[in-house]
Amino acid sequence: MEAASDKKALLFWGLFLVVFALVPISRNDYYLAMANRILVWGMFAVAFNMLFGVTGMLSFGQALFFGLGGYGVGLMVKYLGQAWFLAGLGAGVAAAAVVAYLLGYLVIRVSGVFFTILTLAFGQLAWQITFRWYRVTGGDDGIQGLVPTGILGDHIVYYYFCLILVACSVWFLKRLSASPQGLILRCVRQNPARVRFLGRRVRRNQRRIYVISSVFAALAGGLMAGVDNSIHTNMLNWTTSGEVILMSVLGGIHQFFGPFIGAAVIKVIEDVVGARTEYWSLIIGLVMMTMVLLFPRGLVGEWVSFKARMRSGGARKEGV
């Protein structure tokens, strides 16, 4: 699947950029915010999937870093003023790198479900702290008024700012995924013992991708603060971690762009279903269940294997 021709990749990138770049023409702030949300969450999901789909580490605690990014911006603006918005974005990302590096030593001692549960535990701890330490973080009241100064204060300019950052980040992650390092990460998922035989350190590679994935999660959180102009402790709650897992599985965890498509679909479904029925959770639950049981390759994965079947008359079947 990584062997897609350069031409095709170029076409895809061109289409991706053009479609998103044209959204502001609608002159509708709702579509703009929606597209912005899809971009940011899409990046979050792609970065998360580098951990899950590629390296096989299911973290249930990426909300911690998403929130760290958001609160980097929020706390800087709250205590130092609006001019510090961008500095806050940088601070959040830097903090995430440090926290992920340190936490990595704690949580990457165990694997499988233990890793999942440990990350969940630390994520919930961070959520509790922000929720209760309300004197500093604003707790459940959140922090509002997060508007960047200067031209970034304009919604459209901010949108393009996000678009460029997201495109660069996703491009970087794509390069990483296709690089020898990406190959090693795949080996870590499929056969850690062999990675060791080859003289590579499994844990070190796991920690490295954990930090990288978390840094982009924090970037996503920081960018979201500017989309909503407010942040809230919900960013750190396990439901955020759950949502990003759902996006990845829905899109397809063995496709690089799967999670991005998954993010777009989830954000649209959430909005469309939420606008029409109070029983949104039933519908989203049923969609999720259907995907898990019948389409485990995800939307993009099923599409790819469908195309493959068409081409070879149903003889080829990709392993899941």
Binding site: N28, Y30, A33, D228, N234, M235, G274, W280
Partner: peptide
């Protein structure tokens, strides 16, 4: 609309209310 008690989701819905 069900706010789901989530501020970020509610902000998105409010923007839909206002502009669409």
């Amino acid at each position: 609309t069900d706010s789901q008690a989530k501020p970020d989701y509610s902000v998105q819905v409010a923007k839909r209310y206002i502009t669409s």
